[in-house]
Design a protein around this nucleic acid. Sequence first.
DNA 1: ATCGCCAGTATCCATAAGGTACCTATAGCA
DNA 2: TGCTATAGGTACCTTATGGATACTGGCGAT
Lengths: 119, 119
Amino acid sequence: MDTGDAFDPNCPTRLVLDRIGDKWSVLVLLSLADGPMRFTELRRRVGGVTPKVLTQTLRAMEYDGLLTRKIFAEVPPRVEYTLSELGRSLHEPVAAVTRWAEQNVGRIMGSREAIDHAQ
Amino acid sequence: MDTGDAFDPNCPTRLVLDRIGDKWSVLVLLSLADGPMRFTELRRRVGGVTPKVLTQTLRAMEYDGLLTRKIFAEVPPRVEYTLSELGRSLHEPVAAVTRWAEQNVGRIMGSREAIDHAQ
DNA sequence: ATCGCCAGTATCCATAAGGTACCTATAGCA
DNA sequence: TGCTATAGGTACCTTATGGATACTGGCGAT
């Protein structure tokens, strides 16, 4: 298996990029970086996510070993999501991209406005 | 306008994250980091992208000021895509995520296999 | 005379995302 | 003895988005 070329569609690295490139995954990762959270907490924190999509995202991240899901046998039910070591190791690179976005949002919006204005 | 909270769906930072989180944008950015490229060159380099989607991606990145599009009045036509200063500044953070993916692809695939095996 | 090159469009279809409603069981309240 | 609220989802339907394939135009080469 070729792990070195992200440009090859069959490369596993590409699968990983697809997953972590997902916008909800990134927001979940950033949220959980502050500590474990429950489903509804996450739902409130990550504005705009629907429960279905949040469930899909969390299940996918669990499958990839980025977080763990702990169910407490209580009523009402309680489920806690916690970043794994692997998930925590991804936090810094992702946070760097987010910082870039925050720092450059002005330039990007400026570019869009300049182009819109030229039309 | 609130540029500080990527969790707010109306936050511009979120718009930016959505855009640069797109898998094709990342691959185009990494390709162009080596220098300007033509459309067909990019298409070959970024395996699996269809022309329609590549066009959409390039237009979106141009709109955001990440790259410039230069048309040469020749036959056959020639169009060159070049990263802007802004695009180049995004390269390092994105490359860090890609490096993480390459280094951890094994762990992720291992997690998937462990879970598949447990079923 | 026809073929191929380049940079895309146009068209159609499948998949995925999004929105809303509903389910389960129990504890608390009236 | 209902009635309601709660948490963590599922089920269902509709709407975007992505992807596959085919096609265009002008010219130089065969």
